[in-house]
Structures are given as C-alpha cells and as structure tokens.
C-alpha cells in the first residue's frame, strides 16, 4: 500500500519535472496568482504537498482545474520552481485515467459562435484526454 502511494508520488514528480526541493516556501507564487482566491490548495501548498509526498491532499484538490497556466508563478519564483508544472502533473494524472474527462463536449453547443478556436483546443488539451 505504502509502496503504491510512493510510486504514484514519484510518477507525479516525474511529470511535474521541477526542482521541488529548491522551494523555500516564500509564497510569492500564491501571492501573484490571478486565480488564487478561487483555489482550495494554493500554488505554494501544491509544491509543498508534492515535496512531502502527501498524495491524498493533492488528489483531492480542485485547484489544478482553476489554474490557467499563465506562468506568473513560475516566472516570479525566486528559486526556479514551477508550481504551474505541478498543477499540470495533477491534471494529467486525473485525466489520463479511463473515462476521467473533465469537460463534456456536448456543452459546446451552447457556446458563443465567436469563441476563438484556440480556446476550444486548449480546453480539450487541459481537461480531456
């Protein structure tokens, strides 16, 4: 059981591919995140929990689905860590499972015809597999 958790944590770390141990928990990422006020687990916590290997906390979080990958966190991090990459790793871990798509394509019918293609492509890349 423990091994399985450890394995998943390691897989997440490989996907995130960012130096978690360099984080000094300054909180600049969370401070400048445009959607932090909507997040249940702030960017600095996402980095911390992955560094600690707290899998349950990470998998429960809805923050990755609020993250817009704007890279403000990564660009302002004084230590070269990318919370955005951890968010992506969490999203991928979820949607790469069978039948775990987060966005129902049927909803698109109701959308503004002016919506640029890039938004639709992005949604399918970020929310579905």
């Amino acid at each position: 059981m423990v091994d399985k958790v450890q394995e998943q944590v390691e897989a997440l770390r490989r996907l995130a591919h960012t130096p978690l141990q360099d984080c000094i928990q300054c909180g600049r990422c969370s401070a400048g995140c445009p959607v932090a006020f909507k997040m249940d687990l702030l960017p600095h916590r996402v980095v911390w929990e992955l560094a600690q290997g707290n899998l349950e906390t990470l998998l429960k979080a809805t923050a990755p689905w609020q993250c817009v990958s704007c890279f403000a966190c990564q660009n302002r991090c004084p230590r070269g860590v990318s919370p955005a990459a951890v968010m992506e790793a969490l999203r991928l871990t979820a949607i790469r499972q069978q039948g775990a798509n987060k966005y129902d394509a049927a909803q698109l019918e109701h959308f503004d015809p002016e919506l640029p293609q890039q938004a639709l492509v992005a949604v399918f890349r970020k929310f579905n597999k």
Binding site: G27, S30, A31, A36, F37, L42, H44, R45
Partner: peptide
C-alpha cells in the same frame, strides 16, 4: 497589494 498569508493559507488583496 496582492499577497499571501501562508500560516492561514490565504490569498490577500
């Protein structure tokens, strides 16, 4: 000022 309060785990404006 946009900031973070890490001990209360909050985003501050």
């Amino acid at each position: 000022v946009f900031a973070s309060d890490l001990l209360s785990d909050k985003h501050l404006m």
